[in-house]
Design a protein around this nucleic acid. Structure first.
Length: 165
DNA sequence: TAAGTGCGTCGTT
DNA sequence: AACGACGCACTTA
């Protein structure tokens, strides 16, 4: 796991031969586990990681992420990959409801299952599951903690559009 | 308005 | 068969 140091804590990124396959939010208690020594990391992955780092920093700073690193979403089912792919098309600073995302992904009735797919997203922040909110402009849930969802949305200046509380 | 109930719907375990 | 990061209709206070 390679660290990404930010004002908001240390994110951890993991890579496969395909690309970025997992991104974890800062964990309060855990001191950075295996910071794999950089010399062991293939140069290709180093380059991907620089990109990942840059994207995370930008989003946290309230700016669009720019070019994403290659993403390895192979851990998901076909359904989940379809939802994640649709999520990637939500522009920075905008939000969609679970129902709208279900529609966009061609599964208009799978609204509830879409919530499950969001929760199974292995690459939060870059695959913007935080831009998926409940109907009636309510915020909805977030498995990594609502505080993160609120933080990300506020950095994207989208929070004011949501219903308070 | 706010809070609570019930049910449809469907992918995942 | 049971369980959701849902949505909608509807009832009560």
């Amino acid at each position: 796991m390679l660290p990404i140091r930010t004002e908001d804590g240390v994110f951890l990124a993991r890579y496969s031969v395909e690309g970025l396959c997992e991104l974890k939010f800062p964990q309060p208690g855990k001191s950075s586990p295996e910071s794999t020594s950089p010399s062991d990391v293939p140069s290709e992955i180093c380059q991907w990681h620089e990109r990942t780092d840059q994207c995370v920093q930008k989003i946290l700073a309230g700016k669009p992420p720019g070019k994403l690193p290659p993403l390895d979403l192979s851990s998901g089912t076909d359904f989940q990959r379809g939802i994640w792919k649709a999520m990637l098309e939500i522009p920075f600073g905008e939000v969609l409801s679970y129902a709208q995302l279900a529609l966009k992904a061609g599964k208009p009735a799978a609204v509830r299952a879409v919530g499950g797919a969001c929760g199974a997203n292995p690459i939060p922040v870059l695959v913007p599951c935080h831009r998926v909110v409940a109907a009636n402009r309510r915020i909805g849930g977030f498995s990594s903690g609502l505080k993160w969802k609120r933080l990300l949305l506020s950095r994207e200046a989208s929070l004011f559009r949501l219903q308070p509380a």
